[in-house]
Design a protein around this nucleic acid. Structure first.
Lengths: 251, 251
DNA sequence: TGGGACGTTTCCACTGAGTGGAAGGATGCG
DNA sequence: CGCATCCTTCCACTCAGTGGAAACGTCCCA
């Protein structure tokens, strides 16, 4: 019987809590899900059953639950991601071909840069970004470009969030950041060395849509010793411009 | 007040019905969602609010709802898709570079081939496949490869589902299909001309994981007049083999 | 072979969360 | 200005959802 304190959350919240439990893409057992979503076992069991019946989650032979194809298909149809990705892919591929390093496409989501796409040459520097991951705005090439073209309020929030200094070159002070962002706006390009990843430098540029607003950023992360080569700045700028044009932007 | 016949569905089913309404990736108004999910306006309104609060859906300035970044991020972390995609990308890129046509990676999901990835040369034939779409097993290169290595029961279901004859070369008869599938198994390759798309031919090969099971298929769709060129069969076979090896397969 | 530790599944009586019709706004159009 | 369309809020009724507990399975070790 239902004696004790009833959960404050609605059914929907509980279902979403279950979805969140899978945010890292792991495979989880019933007990793990129940623990992460803070649900009683019996409730988690029933709700997981509903997810599985729908197809959003699947239950493996080992009894573990994992994200199903249905959720994957739903996700990849997200209009922003899809539109940007399809417009950008050819340019990103060209960029990959001419540099053989990491090529990124990212959008801003709150205080993070979310990576929509990453193509990588086989000997590229090891980096932590991957498709779907979210890295801080102040410490990545794409992030700084997106921040430079976001509202003043976003910068305030970033500063208020106590930005972490990953490496000596990571900017965290308001004054330095403001100078850097102004520079990015005037150059239309961000260039930095070892801001987030040791041994790497980045070049990033903004992508605009038909309304002229900056909606994404393209970047290359390459070995620091290749920093002098001119094709990086040139290639990133051309790719960003190409994608913008494909999105309907007219200078 | 709640007079009339109450909906048989559970809250979860209603939430899922709303998610399904967005399966095509469109932007929908409240009334459209309510109609598609067969929910009263007030109920749809409330449930949409919960989705938005969670971040799975976002409400645009025009009042329309669309899939949000959260669902996109959840989806791209689907383990099967992610594992296959990251193992396959370098090989798919090489294939693209050497052919400049459409390069596909697909898995089987029920009676369909779901496209995990598609890279396309700029002058490639127009095809209907796109990432996330699901095409019938019997009418595509990847589909036939996946069908050839699926259980007898899957073939039965396909035959029972009254497979459509898209073009004169589409196989729909049990006898023809069985011969074709046997051939695909013995050759380790599927080659076909104008099965689903006019003016195109396809070459597809199976991808195996560490257990030796066929888990995906790679294909190229190219202009029919390039059909004689040897790099297609060779390239697809090498890519499939490379991806399999990356997945831990040992011959 | 037995027992106990741990994870999963089922059961069921209680109750407040969810429901949806209707009324009230907001907006647009002729 | 009146009508049509779409969105939002309200509220009283009631059954869907709840979760503790008990039954069930499985594995491991002695």
């Amino acid at each position: 019987m239902a004696g004790g304190a009833r959960d404050e959350r609605s059914v929907a919240d509980k279902l979403f809590a279950i979805a969140d439990a899978f945010a890292a893409g792991e495979e989880l057992t019933l007990s793990e899900v129940a623990a992460r979503a803070r649900l009683p076992l019996s409730t988690a069991h029933r709700l997981l059953g509903e997810w599985v019946e729908w197809g959003g989650l699947v239950r493996g032979d080992d009894g573990r639950y994992r994200l199903g194809m249905k959720l994957w298909r739903l996700g990849v149809r997200q209009p922003t991601a899809r539109r940007l990705r399809s417009a950008a892919l050819p340019y990103l591929e060209d960029l990959l071909e001419s540099t053989r390093e990491h090529v990124h496409l990212a959008v801003r989501d709150g205080l993070g840069a979310v990576y929509l796409e990453r193509l990588s040459g086989r000997d590229a520097v090891p980096v932590i970004s991957e498709v779907g991951s979210r890295l801080p705005l102040h410490a990545t090439g794409v992030g700084l470009v997106l921040l430079a073209h976001a509202g003043e309020d976003v910068l305030h929030e970033v500063l208020a969030s106590n930005p972490r200094k990953y490496l000596p070159n990571t900017l965290t002070e308001e004054r330095e950041l403001r100078i850097r962002l102004a520079e990015i706006r005037s150059l239309g390009l961000s260039q930095a060395v070892e801001e987030l990843t040791r041994g790497a430098f980045s070049v990033a540029a903004p992508v605009r849509d038909a309304s002229g607003e900056v909606v994404a950023a393209v970047s290359i992360i390459a070995h620091v010793e290749r920093r002098g080569e001119p094709q990086f700045a040139l290639g990133v700028r051309m790719a960003a411009r190409g994608i913008s044009t494909a999105l309907g932007w007219r200078p």
